[in-house]
């Protein structure tokens, strides 16, 4: 059973007097453990697709089955619960709460789990998530005291803390330099390999999309190509591993 199944998904908005058709009938299956990169220029509908995949928005038409469950017409609160249990978000701008420590940032999704875990257990799980990304030393740092790469790793720890079945990464490297981008992409690759987690990546950069096992190109609200990809090999990144932080080692652990 595919983790994600989109069936003739359509989404349109009213914009003034015009109706904008952001998605014009997208059908797509994503299997567990795939690393899918969705690419396309701005205005192609990839963000809309991402919002629907992330249960932040509902399709106008068609069906979205997440883990076999049709979530196309769920209520706001039901969607919130699904986001909480099944989806981890990684954003371009990290979206960490300012003046809040790394570990508290990672705890945020746990605050909305039902039933609520006790405070000590929430802290424990957040620390474990940070530790798995090699950030245990930074648990008490505020985002402003962390580098961009570290901030994105905190955000990834936050996405992972509730053990979701799907990670949605929206331009996760958009605010990072090349070296850190490579580091983050390698981290995502490793998560897929070690945890078997499904990753959907939205990007407009071909070299970032190249880390995926499957590349889907979207244009004008339709899928124009859907190809399997041999991910950018590990050797490529291992060149500058020595200079980089021990993220890979930690992620492998």
């Amino acid at each position: 059973m595919p983790v994600i199944s989109l069936q003739n998904l359509k989404k349109s908005y009213a914009l003034g007097d015009n109706t904008v058709h952001a998605l014009r009938g997208v059908s797509l299956d994503i299997e567990e453990g795939e690393f899918v990169a969705i690419t396309g220029p701005s205005g192609s509908g990839k963000s809309t697709m991402m919002h629907i995949l992330g249960c932040l928005d509902r399709p106008t038409e068609g069906h979205y089955l997440l883990g076999g469950e049709d979530v196309s017409n769920l209520s706001r609160d039901a969607l919130a619960d699904i986001r909480n249990r099944q989806i981890g978000f990684v954003f371009q701008g990290f979206n960490l709460l300012p003046r809040t420590t790394a570990v508290e940032n990672v705890e945020v999704p746990l605050l909305y789990s039902r039933p609520l875990l006790p405070a000590a257990e929430r802290r424990q799980r957040a620390l474990e998530a940070l530790d798995s990304l090699g950030l245990s030393q930074r648990a008490d740092h505020h985002p402003s005291q962390l580098s961009g790469g570290q901030q994105q790793r905190v955000a990834i720890a936050r996405a992972l803390v509730n053990k979701p079945s799907l990670i949605l990464a929206d331009e996760p490297t958009g605010n990072l330099d090349t070296k850190t981008s490579i580091e983050v992409m390698r981290l995502l690759q490793n998560l897929r390999e070690s945890l078997g987690i499904t990753i959907v990546l939205i990007t407009h950069e071909p070299e970032i999309a190249a880390y995926g096992t499957r590349i889907i190109a979207v244009r004008d609200g339709e899928i124009v190509s859907d190809v399997a990809n041999t991910p950018t090999p590990m050797e490529h990144v291992e060149e500058d591993q020595e200079q980089s932080e021990p993220a890979l080692a930690a992620a492998n652990a």
């Binding site: 706001r76 709460l97 999704p109 605050l111 909305y112």
Partner: peptide, 15 residues
């Protein structure tokens, strides 16, 4: 933005 993030992380309206 914080509200958006919390909602993405699964906060219901009531939360």
């Amino acid at each position: 933005r914080e509200i958006g993030l919390r909602m993405a992380a699964g906060a219901r309206s009531a939360d």
